[in-house]
Design a protein around this nucleic acid. Structure first.
Lengths: 229, 229
DNA sequence: TTTACGTAGTGATATACATCACGTCTCACC
DNA sequence: GGTGAGACGTGATGTATATCACTACGTAAA
């Protein structure tokens, strides 16, 4: 049954983990499960913010573009992640584009309903404060990186961040669970694809990163960390 | 009486505005008012995060430094502002230094108490979500700026942001309510003091900014906005 | 009064990185 | 099987801006 499917999917979302049966039911009731095909847009920057999304499967790219077409990739999200992070409790607009990279199943909740539920369960509020707090710390770190580090170090740190957000640990390495082109990686930190290419190959030669048969990155995070002191 | 003073001070903090008498009283009860002299540190990066601060008067600089001593100024906070923004509901550490620039009166609340109060008043939770949401949007914008814009535009945008966070509107201009040296401004966006100096003077010649008798910046925000299209 | 230190201001130089301009390879599609 | 679109890869060149090196001013301390 559809609702059962949604419930099991919701239990995989980090924000809702540890909720009891009774606590999760009202959330299930207001949830919608929708499949988005690759290359489609969930929303565009500036659209009225009326829904919140939780990823059950697939990959979603959050990005911004300027007039000249230059792109900034805010993040590549996957199962368990929520978006957007800001704009609750005031009629706002989505602050970035959300584009599907790999066919995705998203749980969709009207933002008004989500807010009501949030206030009803203190446990959920705490979780939410934690999630937002982590987001703030992450953004502050990225800004610090961009300001204090040179491009080589920024790339090393980007790879380490991707291990956490998009990787699984295998022995002493992390394997990234999504494909990334040089251009995408470059657009995450605001460098050129040529520089990204050269640096990635430099790291490959140093045997700090590698690629598996399917083209996924294998990252030796401990060794990489030595590069940034 | 001391508690009365604290209460009136708390009412000036944006997070607590619009709270009723009964709602604000328990917050007053757990609050401490403390004066910090200029140049002192409220806390250092890495200290255990056990308190939350609200500024009643004075100026506080939030910054990070790397090994070589290079500084990133996260923000210059003043009356009505809260810090830190992250780290609630988990025993964490302060993510940056907080240094007093101008003698400051701070309201100090133990973080555990603050969390309890937060959960008791849904109205406060909503406010808090808004504050954190705005912080996230602000950080994302700054990161985008740093990635997509050249230094000239970053400086223009920095000045516009300072109008909002540290300015008061006077006719068609904003007057900044704190002194900023070229070096401080440079460290906010990660440029050199020389470049900041040259750019500021360029903007002065274009008559987009000016300085009043006391050395405070006067900023013609409408004209400035034309510089970034 | 002198010394010391922080800031503003400004030319000269160095350099990290973007940009340009190619070639090659793969894959999708008519 | 050819053609076009993306991707990777890599040298050559250009440039924004960091860095260096200095003068000058103001203020605080000795």
């Amino acid at each position: 049954m559809k609702l059962e499917v949604i419930k099991s999917h919701l239990q995989g979302v980090s924000l809702f983990k540890e909720l009891s049966e009774e606590e999760i039911q009202p959330i299930v009731d207001i949830s919608l499960l929708r499949t988005y095909p690759a290359r489609s847009f969930v929303f565009m920057q500036g659209d009225p913010l009326d829904r919140v999304f939780f990823i059950h499967s697939g990959k979603v790219k959050i990005n911004k573009t300027d007039l000249s077409g230059k792109e900034q990739i805010v993040s590549i999200l996957q199962d368990g992640d929520m978006f957007p992070h800001a704009g609750f409790f005031r009629k706002g607009n989505f602050p970035a584009h959300a584009e599907i990279l790999e066919t995705a199943e998203l749980i969709v909740i009207p933002v008004g309903e989500f807010e009501k539920i949030l206030l009803k369960y203190p446990e959920l509020c705490i979780k939410m404060f934690k999630v937002l707090g982590e987001k703030i710390v992450d953004l502050q770190n990225r800004l610090e990186e961009k300001i204090l580090r040179d491009t080589y170090e920024q790339i090393v740190m980007l790879l380490l961040r991707l291990c956490k957000s998009n990787g699984v640990r295998i022995n002493d390495q992390y394997k990234l669970t999504a494909h990334f082109t040089n251009r995408q990686l470059a657009n995450m930190i605001g460098t050129s694809r040529e520089t990204m290419n050269r640096t990635i190959n430099r790291l490959r030669n140093k045997e700090l990163i590698d690629t598996d048969e399917e083209g996924y990155f294998l990252i030796s995070s401990e060794k990489l960390e030595d590069e940034i002191i």
